[in-house]
Write a protein that binds this DNA or RNA. Structure first.
Lengths: 102, 102
DNA sequence: CATATACATCCATGGTTGTCAATATGTAAA
DNA sequence: TTTACATATTGACAACCATGGATGTATATG
């Protein structure tokens, strides 16, 4: 739960093609070939993107014969909400910095 | 509310220094000079990071004389939660793609 | 006006990232 | 074992990005 880990997750989300993949996975597991039909990228590029999503823990994979099945990781949504909460909550109370110091 | 806009937001969050800024802003508005004291970056670099956070709508700014006061945008938290929800929800129901097609 | 302070902008540089062609790996079928 | 297919890996390249020094801009003060 370090800044570095959170950056890794946000980086994985910071790409149009990867967000498009997540949209496609919303109605359940899909194999790479199916994703490839929809997205306008080459097969190596898709493989690259899926690796980033998996490494960040956002997407799960399941190998079945020749096919790779990808799905949204079960706990990724809750984890993301927690991360958002840890950076964007703010405690009320003025702490204007410059005025008091001069 | 396009993929492009969401990518912009995630990119703004995908940096250690910018996440550190958000942590510092959690107890309220702070001016750039105060942020500069804590973070190990040069003044131009901090200015660059703050611009990205502001452009993404995550941070608000308020100019007061020579000082720039930054604060976490009031609605950024809720907006982020909505974005997360729009990409990471998943509707149950099997849609295994390869099996049915062969 | 001259000076000092707080911050933004410009510019150059090194590192990172998205992309695809070529190739490798692994699996299934003939 | 040969062939075909699905996916991963490698290599190369262009685009993007984080960084800081130099400089510009705006504001306050003397």
């Amino acid at each position: 739960m370090s800044l570095r880990d959170d950056v890794k997750i946000f980086k994985a989300l910071a790409d149009e093609n990867r967000l498009a993949v997540l949209m496609l996975l919303q109605d359940g597991e899909k194999c790479a070939c199916k994703l490839l039909e929809t997205l306008n990228v080459s097969q190596p590029t898709l493989s690259h993107h899926m690796k980033l999503l998996c490494d960040a823990g956002i997407v799960d994979y399941r190998k079945e014969g020749k096919w790779m099945h990808y799905s949204i990781s079960a706990d990724s949504r809750e984890r993301l909400h927690e991360i958002i909460e840890s950076y964007l909550k703010y405690n009320t109370g003025c702490s204007c910095c410059c005025k008091e110091e001069e």
